[in-house]
Design a protein around this nucleic acid. Structure first.
Lengths: 165, 165
DNA sequence: TTATATCCCATTGACGCCCATAAATTCCCA
DNA sequence: TGGGAATTTATGGGCGTCAATGGGATATAA
């Protein structure tokens, strides 16, 4: 499976639909058919509110399946270890592609991410995020600067350590 | 269709009926027919009072069967777990779908969950819950915030890879 | 009968399916 | 190597189908 990498900006139409980038569809679809056979023929993705950002987070069948498997099926009292998995399942939307590879963006998620007429898909390896473009640019700028400065600090530290010895 | 995921809000009519979401019906029906053949052709679900919340909990034939089987495996489960399983079976209602995929909500369960004219079905992987919508929203808000505040430190059980943002 | 439950049909509104066009990318060839 | 032609992807919108809902008719039990 290819990883989810890069950014794609797509339009949200009046019906609230948005095309999932072809590259993402490819990356997300392959593992399912191999792992579970043609029986579970769900063609689509899972969306939920990011816990950290004002953005939507998404994943494919493979990831969700691992969340499901992490739960002990026969456990009648779920312990706190399961809270994350349960919360994730409860708050996820299973969105099927239409014939053209689009999905409908649930109102709750659109509102949460502040989406209006455009959305940027951002690859994050096994998962991806969907942001309001402006919000993402700001976030990305900050993240990049933070990484850059941290990198500088790290190099500095290494240098100091070197001097110590 | 494998796991129960996401939420669906449906109306409870004057007769006390409510539609079980199609996605849930699909997810609950498939494994039964495969495992047990056409002999046990029960088309419906099992409902019982949640041990933990003021909500109804539900499952399909497959899960109930697993609980039943767990009682026969003498060494594997503790007495406490057996008691739990028995209590579950004793308190479960077997509700059949009508022609349209609706079920009748037993008064005991409606009262327990404080249901009036609407009910929200919440997927939890192998099982689901039925809540009074307002009560669920409050509960979910708290759960979501708790997970959020615990942040990236939390890890999924049985999962090598952590769930980081 | 009264109450309870199952089946049947009728309505509606959302969503999936379809086609038609636009934009973008690749491919091909002069 | 520039620029079209062809293929693929993205976008827009109409329409039919089916899930959800409401209510009535019929069957069963108390």
């Amino acid at each position: 499976m290819t990883a989810l990498i890069g950014r794609h900006t797509n339009k949200i139409d009046k019906k609230g639909r948005v095309s999932v980038p072809k590259a993402f569809r490819n990356a997300l679809s392959s593992p399912v058919s191999e792992e579970r056979g043609a029986s579970t023929l769900f063609s689509g993705i899972y969306l939920y509110r990011s816990f950290k950002y004002s953005a939507i987070e998404g994943c494919g069948e493979a990831f969700i399946q691992r969340v499901v498997d992490s739960l002990d099926e026969l456990e009648l009292f779920s312990d706190e270890q399961d809270d994350l998995a349960i919360t994730l399942l409860e708050n996820s939307y299973q969105m099927a592609y239409d014939t053209e590879g689009r999905i409908f963006l649930p109102v709750e998620l659109r509102t949460y991410a502040g989406l209006s007429d455009e959305a940027i898909f951002v690859g994050r390896g096994t998962r991806f995020q969907v942001w309001q473009p402006e919000a993402y640019n700001i976030h990305n700028k900050n993240s990049f600067e933070r990484v850059r400065s941290q990198g500088a600090t790290l190099r500095l530290k290494k240098l100091q350590e070197g001097f110590d010895q």
